[in-house]
Design a binder for these strands. Sequence first.
DNA 1: CGAGTATCAGAGAGCGCTCTCACAGAGAGC
DNA 2: GCTCTCTGTGAGAGCGCTCTCTGATACTCG
Lengths: 329, 329
Amino acid sequence: MKRPTLEAVAARAGVSRATVSRVVNGSDTVNPDIRTAVLRAVKELGYVPNPAARSLVTQRTGSIGLVVSEPPARVFSDDPFFSQVIRTVCLELETADRQAVLMMPSSPDGQARVERYVAGGHVDGVILLSLHGADPLPAALLRTGVPVVSHGRPVSTARPPYCDADNVGGARAAVQHLLDRGRRRIATISGPPDMSAGLDRLAGYREILSGTGRRSLAAIGDFTRESGAAAMAQLLEDDPGLDAVFAASDLMATGALYALRRAGRRVPDDVAVVGFDDIDAARFTDPPLTTVRQPIAEVARTIVRMVLDGADDTTPVIFPVELIVRDST
Amino acid sequence: MKRPTLEAVAARAGVSRATVSRVVNGSDTVNPDIRTAVLRAVKELGYVPNPAARSLVTQRTGSIGLVVSEPPARVFSDDPFFSQVIRTVCLELETADRQAVLMMPSSPDGQARVERYVAGGHVDGVILLSLHGADPLPAALLRTGVPVVSHGRPVSTARPPYCDADNVGGARAAVQHLLDRGRRRIATISGPPDMSAGLDRLAGYREILSGTGRRSLAAIGDFTRESGAAAMAQLLEDDPGLDAVFAASDLMATGALYALRRAGRRVPDDVAVVGFDDIDAARFTDPPLTTVRQPIAEVARTIVRMVLDGADDTTPVIFPVELIVRDST
DNA sequence: CGAGTATCAGAGAGCGCTCTCACAGAGAGC
DNA sequence: GCTCTCTGTGAGAGCGCTCTCTGATACTCG
């Protein structure tokens, strides 16, 4: 009733353990006849290698850690952007015959767990998602010597290699588009100031506006829909005459649309709205949302490749983004 | 430069390997003085147990597989419902000091991988999400002898234990609510007919309607926003006089809202809409969505408990749901 | 025809841990 | 004072696998 071992397969095929190991691991220095005999024995016994025994000697596990660092208060992880990244990373890892171990440390205690877990050699590499500035985790993980790659430019002092979309360029394109549409008073709902996606998109916004000599008007959000709605309300209070807003994420943009509706403003007639990400929902809002599309899948795939390659090439990879014009502008 | 082993810690603390092992694993039959000495050695050397070696002998891994069975065509996994389940499962597992291994087999090949992975003893248990009727995976996994629990009633012939929300009751409540509001011609957008959440919510709808002698009018969706929009368009064509619709998921309901808007129908004046799930976005639609709230977190937590308990109690656990009335009805 | 050279299978030493079992020493009971 | 528990430690045997190294066989070439 026990699971068959290499030994059992070897006995059945009439060869040694070493040969079975060779066949199972696809070595090409095995006589074809012996190989087929071994494969038959494997099939007959339903042999599956014991991963623990294997990784005990190979020092590798075939798993990659996917760490989503999000404070407990934030429900940011409901952002479809996240699901898409996680899904793509997962699929890409499966292509490479690896598994994703999902970790969502939501407390210092959880972070310590992740650190121990990685230091313990549970995973061959780590992908960091949604890094925040003060997060001590990247530094700790880099110290373990395990390959670490960040999704998005890290803001912390520890700088793992990363891959990101062109956040600054995307924000520039969004704001320029609003200017081209003749908007004069353009506000922004920025992301959290401890995340590069927040900072960079704000920087792009400021850059374009300052080029035209206009004042900037910003309210800070945290990428959630709720914060988008609150920020929009705040902006309307600060400057009732605004006629456009650039939200640093689609989720916040949908919150802004909600707040504008409640305030009785028409979109785009009174206020034009641009988002960022191009999540699925952006096509179904009222009105459909103009937004900056980032190549989520490509970034995710690149990150997987980077971490599987050992994360030794530390030059960042930045993907271009694309403005998708719909009816909200 | 190598990682310290138990042996090294033992040498440093001046005790045997066995004693260190006892301390590390929290045995209470160790002399307090020796224990502190060992703990100091552990800290000084930065010792972290090797999980492979440990699970080689204990036959357990500390990981639970989270299998999301979704055909590649469907983007269902963008449903915030999913993210929430995955997040809660993950957090709950971390509480129990376990890790979640995320698997999204999107092809027969991927399913075979999952099967091998589980059979190989990589995980101590499996949680199945989003099971479809014809899926051969549950049966295969049950055969491995590893504890398997399904999130949602399984429709396949293989019947792992499961935990679910009261889908039938929720649908009943939704439709009854529409009747109470004086609606006469109530349609439904159902979920896929190979999933229990689809079937059961449709059953609840039919049950209430047939109780009043009314005809049912259903269009089939697949829980995506796109399918909700398409189904709504279809329903309007089939019966332009309908004055209410019950969508089997909030995501489909938002699609329906979009389709109704495009068709020039006002919600709730012309057509009332009820969803299912109570995702975050439901509060921010135009108008905010009446929906059936299911206790996503409780179900997720229960499932984790079930699988950690060995999935030996096969009686299903069903949680009650709650109708949340907003402005769409 | 014998020495040299590939080619490929087997033997065996671990990888780092847990866990059973033996055993030493302290205290209890007569 | 002696045996009898009881408590707590150490010794050592694996867990199932990989991988190096040895050795056997077949082949090439002078």
